[in-house]
């Protein structure tokens, strides 16, 4: 059926719908349900076994892109190639580790007609885990005490300041609890081998974990905000089930975060509510979270709104959302022909 809605070609990363999922597939589901445009989805993948590559009702065509560690020039060249074929309108990057490159490339992409809606480099750096203590002071928000360390022995000095357990966090991903120094060393080595240095040692806040996903317009206005309580958490700490909640304090904190930082783009706040009811800001993820489809399901289609902002279209703030709606994730085995795996592995396209 033909509609008057414009059709946008949108590049989306994060197709790794695995046990610690990238947000790509959920973002695309939101885009496919957009009321204001139709879309053709170009998957941008790093590995040949990212499940989204093979979900042909979700992704129209996929191209491998180089890892961020190869540098922005190589990424730029690859995107030029993809753009030449696909005529991209928008790119939505969904990994923390790739954001730096995309933020750097944003003006160049814009000059070629590819729109993004990302935080500024200053916003991206300021909210970094390593800088969280300064962020808390600057914006008057409770944050757990933390320190970036380069050797496990540096954590020894923190043992006197913080109580056990300690939270051992990677620069971009991964976090584990350590109950003694041996566990600190083991986690330090494991996480640093994967994500590099520094490692962040954080004070553990006892309480209940809440998350908020939202969207700021870059002018200090909240376009969207949906708080969620994790109901089912995997051993990697990821939400496998969650429920939308009506938490005014969490929304107030989100509005304060957006208005004071003038946040531009989507984000996720990881919050811990202690017994006294105070919220601690544990982490600010500068991108859409993997559970974004819950926000779509409760009435705030953040991927659609973000795309509209990227295109420079007028975008009204969402006023409400449904409380008490749950998401429950599931695993699904797809049967894939070897020829498809062969094609993406050898040609980098499918």
């Amino acid at each position: 059926m033909k509609t008057n809605k414009p059709t946008l070609t949108i590049g989306v990363t994060g197709l790794n719908a695995i046990d610690s999922p990238g947000p790509g597939v959920a973002v695309i589901r939101g885009l496919r349900e957009a009321a204001s445009f139709n879309c053709r989805i170009i998957g941008l993948s790093y590995e040949s076994l990212e499940p989204g590559i093979y979900m042909h009702d979700i992704v129209d065509k996929t191209y491998h892109i180089p890892y961020p560690s190869t540098g922005t020039e190589i990424l730029s060249d690859r995107l030029d190639y993809i753009h030449e074929i696909e005529k991209l309108d928008v790119i939505i990057p969904n990994f923390d580790a790739e954001l730096y490159s995309f933020i750097k490339l944003a003006p160049k992409l814009k000059s070629k007609g590819i729109h993004t809606f990302l935080p500024t480099l200053e916003q991206f750096e300021e909210r970094h885990k390593v800088n969280l203590p300064e962020f808390g002071v600057k914006y008057d928000m409770h944050v757990p005490r933390s320190k970036a360390v380069y050797t496990p022995n540096e954590a020894l000095s923190l043992e006197k300041e913080y109580e056990w357990p300690l939270v051992i966090k990677g620069k971009y991903y991964d976090a584990t609890l350590a109950y003694n120094f041996d566990q600190v060393k083991s986690s330090f080595n494991k996480i640093s081998a994967k994500w590099g240095l520094p490692i962040i040692i954080q004070e553990f806040i006892h309480g209940t974990e809440y998350n908020v996903t939202g969207l700021g317009d870059g002018e200090g206005n909240t376009i969207a905000a949906v708080p969620m309580r994790k109901q089912y958490i995997t051993d990697k700490g990821k939400a496998w089930g969650g429920i939308s909640i009506d938490d005014k304090k969490a929304i107030q904190l989100t509005n304060k975060f957006i208005s004071e930082t003038k946040w531009r783009g989507a984000f996720e706040l990881e919050l811990m509510k202690n017994k006294a009811g105070d919220y601690y800001l544990l982490e600010i993820n500068p991108r859409i979270p993997a559970w974004i489809y819950l926000a779509v399901g409760v009435g705030q289609n953040i991927p659609e709104a973000l795309t509209r902002l990227a295109m420079g279209w007028p975008t009204e703030p969402f006023k409400s959302y449904e409380v008490g709606k749950m998401f429950i994730r599931y695993a699904w085995d797809m049967i894939v022909n070897l020829s498809e795996f062969e094609k993406i592995s050898t040609l980098g396209e499918l």
């Binding site: 809440y210 969620m228 309580r229 909640i245």
Partner: peptide
Amino acid sequence: NNIAISDSGFVFNPSSGES
């Protein structure tokens, strides 16, 4: 006031998400 109670005895606190 905002606590939801169903006829079957299911109680939901929308502020915390607990049931």
